[in-house]
Design a protein around this nucleic acid. Structure first.
Lengths: 163, 163
DNA sequence: GTAACTGCAAAGAATTTGCAGTCGC
DNA sequence: GCGACTGCAAATTCTTTGCAGTTAC
């Protein structure tokens, strides 16, 4: 049942991306559809290499240059969000349709948690206003260590370097 | 009078950095002293190339590799903060001794404003706790456009690309 | 039909590193 | 004196780009 829900959501995201492309006069090529699907089905925050790998499983002929170009386009079109978690590379995920979430990076094992907080959203807006600005974007990452932990050390999303 | 104050502060920052180096068993070379001075005297957020340029004005023989190495060391030692404002390069500034400030990037002209907000600090900590983490670091940037503006377009700190 | 897109390989930009010589402690 | 540090140039890593052929609309 979970899987069905996921597939449905992913399919919805794919068509959302396809529509966004067509709206902006971009052509919907097989490669873009594949990358859209890969991103829609991802629940983590893959970097370019990782997206390339997953896309290659679907079409082994896809080129990494195309992945770079497509991710850049999707990013500009606000279809996806680009993140920088402190290791050198950019990471991507499908953009929120509503609301806005941020990330907490577990310094112990590299896990990335997502969270959303209305109060936080308000404060950010308020601070910007107080400085005389309209908030048009923002970026927040928290870096933390598990409370009272001495736990495992796996690193499903690699390690970060910025504290 | 302002200038005197600045020089005093810069001198204090330089010796603080020197002490931190010695504390950690790092050698205090001329190059490191120069880079410490450059950073201490900067009120903006220079990138490596810029630090290199300013350091070169003091000692034209300094190498950019040394600047890279030194900035990395200072960063690890928590003497300085590294930032990423969305253009490709890293930017640096002397770390806060107390408190913690963040940045608002003016999307219109690239200006970078600094701000501090106690309420914000609390929320971040609280969110981390709710997720089961002790907050050990964080990063926040706001991107904004001036309210009711159609103003100038200078870019003293270059332009950013992330919204 | 044609402008946009792709793959490939080469170019670019930012940063790191190997090595031989130098210098702080 | 010795290990840490520096300068230099070459190497790495991530990302972009020029070009010739292909494809979506």
């Amino acid at each position: 049942m979970v899987k069905v829900t996921l597939d449905k959501e992913a399919a919805r995201a794919v068509s959302r991306i396809e529509n966004a492309c067509l709206d902006k006069g971009m052509k919907m090529t097989d490669q873009r559809r594949i990358i859209a699907r890969v991103l829609s089905e991802s629940t983590d925050h893959p970097d370019v290499e990782e997206v390339y790998g997953r896309a290659s499983n679907i079409d082994p002929h896809i080129s990494i240059a195309t992945v770079y170009r497509t991710l850049r386009l999707f990013d500009i079109a606000n279809i996806i969000d680009r993140h920088d978690f402190g290791d050198g590379r950019s990471r991507y995920e499908v953009a929120d349709e509503v609301g806005h979430h941020h990330h907490l990076i577990d310094m112990k094992n590299g896990h990335v948690l997502e969270f959303e907080n209305a109060e936080l959203e308000n404060i950010k807006k308020r601070i910007a206003h107080e400085l005389g600005y309209e908030l048009v974007g923002d970026r927040l990452e928290l870096y933390g260590v598990p409370i009272g932990a001495s736990g495992d050390d796996s690193d499903p999303e690699k390690k970060s370097r910025t504290p």
